[in-house]
Simulated scan of single mutants.
Amino acid sequence: MKYVIILVVLASFGAIVYGFSLDEEQADLANKYIGSGTLGLFFVAMPLFLLTESRGKKMKDYMLNEENIRKMNEREKQKPGNQ
């Protein structure tokens, strides 16, 4: 999966760079390449990356709820120098 993500990112950046390198006469085609590269990054590569990196982790630990706020406050009080 790691290599698929890298491939999608490189292809997306390649499309964006190619879109910027096209002449002004082909502005419509350039915009399509730039747009498809951007969509590839944000709608394909980023969700794939987030899915692979968050596998096996509890989302409850990362949510800001009352229990986690209390834990953060307790840790802050226990730090040296905070009195």
Rank of each mutant, 00 (worst) to 15 (best):
A15M: 11
S54E: 07
A45W: 08
G19M: 04
V9G: 00
S36V: 14
G40E: 03
Y3N: 07
M72S: 09
P80L: 15
F49S: 09
Q26T: 03
R55P: 00
N68W: 13
K77E: 09
E66M: 10
S12R: 00
R75K: 14
E66D: 12
A45Q: 05
V17L: 11
G56T: 10
E24L: 14
I34E: 01
A15S: 13
L22Q: 08
R55W: 11
F43A: 12
F20M: 09
A27W: 07
K57P: 02
A27R: 07
I16T: 03
S36G: 09
Y62M: 15
M59F: 10
P80D: 10
L29C: 00
R55Q: 12
K2F: 09
L7H: 08
V8E: 04
Q83M: 06
K71F: 02
K58N: 13
Y33S: 08
I16H: 00
N31L: 04
L29H: 04
S36F: 15
Y3W: 11
E67L: 15
V9M: 11
A27I: 14
I16P: 02
Q78Y: 05
Q78N: 11
E67T: 15
L7Y: 10
L7W: 07
T38M: 11
I69A: 08
E74R: 14
F43M: 12
K2Q: 10
E25K: 13
V17R: 05
I6A: 10
I5K: 08
G35A: 02
E66W: 08
M1F: 07
K77I: 14
L7F: 14
L10E: 00
S54A: 12
Q26K: 07
I6N: 04
A11I: 12
E53W: 03
N82Q: 09
L7M: 11
S54I: 12
S12N: 03
K60I: 13
